[in-house]
Amino acid sequence: MALVLDGVAFGLQLALLATGLTLIYGLAGVLNLAHGQLVVAAAMVGAVALGAGAPVLLALGLAVVTAGAAAVLLDVTLLRPVYRLRGQARVLLSLLLTLGVAFAADGLLVHSFPFTRLNLSVATPSVELLGVTVRSASVVASLVAIVALGGLVVLLRTTRVGRAIRSLTQDEEGAQLCGVDPGRTRRLVFVLGGSMAGLVAVTQGLVSSVGATSGLDLTIFALIVTVVGGLGRVSGAVVAGVLLGVVHAVAAFHIGTVLTFVILLVAAIVVILVRPSGILGGAGS
């Protein structure tokens, strides 16, 4: 039971990480391979701000804003030529461009912050939950993730902006004919997706810590969850995140982290081959 709770907590963070990636992919056709670096950039800004004596909430707010701003900056600068292409060509060019951005950012981050880590896990008391003792930091991190994910779902389901985002995800030209401004909506989605990545820095900083070298691993985790949930499907990413989080926790306990990682990777490969639209299935959007 303790393992499952741990897994759910980890899974919620995976979900948070993957929704940002999948939201941007679904709407813009950009698979952002620098997604993990957004998390790291946010973490570094947060850590530096904390080190400079900023109040915790301000520092974390800065962290989230940094990731959101970095993502939208990517959208309005380097990715501009990408949007002139359609379909597969767009996906491929965006993939190669953001891979370059990921390397560039990785080098810069590791060089500039070799010893900086965002670590918010100040000695927190443990709490009793479902008869199991859990760290309160983990509870807080999970609550943050739940609120953020819930907020995103409500935004997408019930608001006009959310409707516009979903319409663009399904049919870009159809959405334009309905008066949806693709550029503006895309910028908004990059801000949202980037901010979700920034929140991952916060929750990850609560339960453990984020260092400058974590970028690639985070991107890989995000990719695995996104693929298992179905590329571009927000609800799929949430379900896949929690599911893989539990698998991760249980497997890591029994067979060690190395083989667990292999299991997650193989799961992603199998899903692509057997059910490319993700575990929730149905026709892909």
Partner: peptide, 16 residues
């Protein structure tokens, strides 16, 4: 928008 309901499709017609 095939995955959205008829009502949502109609409402989108007057976006924003």
């Amino acid at each position: 928008f095939g995955a959205m309901t008829v009502r949502e499709n109609l409402v989108l017609g007057a976006h924003p």
